[in-house]
Simulated assay, not measured.
Amino acid sequence: MANEKLSEALRLLGIGPGAVRVYRSLLAEGPAPLSAVGDAAGVTGPELAEAYRELVDSGLASTADEEREVVAPVPPAAGLEILGRRRAAELDSSRITVGSAFDSFRRHRLAGYHDPLVEVVTGEAIGLRMRQAWASAREQIRQFDSPPYFPLEGATDDALATLARGVTQRVVYSRASLEHPGQLENAIEPCVEAGEQARVLPSVPVKLVVIDDAYALVALSIKETDVYNTMLVVQPCGLLSALVALFEQAWQSALPLHGRTARPAALLPADRRLLRLLAAGADDEVIARELGVSRRTLFRRVQVLMARLGATSRFQMALQAQRSGWL
């Protein structure tokens, strides 16, 4: 289990599968000759050289004895900081690229646009098209979710029905999604409990739904959704590929919201909701409103949960809750 967690953590930081195997072997065998480490990891030749070079570039390994070609792991603090910043920079770059593509598209081509690769849907037709999208999914749905929300009756039921059909659903929620009145309790939590894979970021770059790899539904921008009430349907093309890449970058950086995981039986649904809101960065006023309690009661609940988790701060409590499967 520890090796699986280590492999997943390294993967989230952008380390390739070959380098992950070599690093795990290096932790078990090192300091040791690189060839011996590669043999233990089942990685040899050019693949081993490339994997080791990746670990060195990431600040996770170095040469301990050049004459004997002995290598060893190094303290990871500096390397992890570099990797974290690199992932953040990649995500920012992707956001800028896609944002620039949309700005250019809107300035030069939206008016009178008739290319079959992009369809403009407005008004009440948006709701119908969204319901059709959920019904047409066969393998997976990838989604960025953030207010404002289009008034679509039965949207949660559509999502639950899609999950019941065995369609994988991965959603990155913005913090504003969890803070939106009733959204966490009435829409997000039912889908997470039904098997949706949910993660949270402070914000998402665009309102987006990708159906399989067939097409995407995109709002012009989050701020303008309630003003223009316009959605784009993007067919397979370079723009769709960019949107998929943007989602995958954000997914790697987001904090998981767990559903079907082992939790202490005494954890109340309200406490779980409290932890999710805290992990998303919601302030006390928003959390108290969502739970329907006073700020004094909220403070008492937070203190009790901190004591149960052995945490000395709210940030530490959120981390401990995630590790314990409470989120």
Results as ranks from 00 to 15, higher is better:
195 G>R: 01
145 D>G: 00
207 K>W: 01
51 A>V: 08
289 R>L: 05
97 T>G: 01
99 G>A: 10
17 P>R: 09
180 H>V: 00
7 S>R: 15
314 R>E: 14
32 A>M: 10
228 Y>Q: 08
244 V>P: 00
31 P>N: 07
32 A>E: 12
188 I>L: 04
99 G>Y: 13
202 P>N: 05
41 A>N: 05
7 S>Y: 06
61 A>R: 08
231 M>N: 02
188 I>W: 03
312 T>H: 14
41 A>V: 07
46 P>R: 12
117 L>I: 02
7 S>C: 03
124 E>K: 11
299 F>D: 11
55 L>G: 05
291 L>N: 07
220 L>Y: 04
134 W>Y: 15
141 I>F: 01
145 D>L: 04
254 A>K: 02
327 L>Y: 02
75 P>M: 04
255 L>R: 14
241 S>N: 11
11 R>V: 03
269 P>G: 07
68 R>P: 00
23 Y>N: 05
203 S>V: 07
77 A>Y: 09
56 V>A: 11
76 P>A: 10
249 Q>T: 06
86 R>C: 00
40 A>Y: 13
118 V>N: 01
313 S>G: 11
302 V>I: 15
247 F>G: 01
65 D>V: 08
193 E>S: 06
249 Q>V: 01
98 V>Y: 10
26 L>R: 11
185 E>V: 12
288 A>N: 10
201 L>P: 04
126 I>E: 05
164 A>E: 15
99 G>R: 12
163 L>I: 09
314 R>I: 13
56 V>I: 09
195 G>T: 04
262 A>H: 13
128 L>E: 14
292 G>K: 13
201 L>S: 06
215 Y>K: 01
31 P>W: 09
239 L>N: 02
307 A>F: 09
84 G>S: 09
70 V>G: 04
48 L>H: 13
202 P>L: 02
47 E>F: 02
183 Q>V: 13
230 T>Q: 12
14 G>Q: 01
144 F>P: 03
245 A>R: 15
70 V>M: 07
53 R>A: 13
212 D>A: 03
284 D>N: 13
31 P>M: 07
55 L>P: 07
28 A>P: 00
309 L>K: 07
206 V>S: 02
3 N>L: 10
180 H>T: 12
166 G>T: 04
143 Q>K: 13
4 E>V: 15
85 R>E: 14
284 D>P: 00
100 S>K: 10
184 L>N: 06
37 V>F: 08
100 S>E: 14
69 E>W: 10
258 H>Q: 14
149 Y>S: 03
81 E>S: 14
130 M>Y: 12
41 A>L: 04
202 P>I: 03
28 A>F: 01
42 G>M: 10
96 I>M: 07
52 Y>L: 12
144 F>Y: 11
93 S>R: 15
36 A>N: 14
289 R>M: 06
127 G>A: 15
246 L>E: 11
21 R>M: 09
99 G>S: 14
17 P>L: 02
231 M>P: 00
238 G>F: 09
132 Q>F: 05
276 R>W: 08
197 Q>V: 05
61 A>K: 09
200 V>Q: 04
191 C>Y: 00
269 P>A: 05
262 A>L: 15
44 T>H: 15
258 H>M: 10
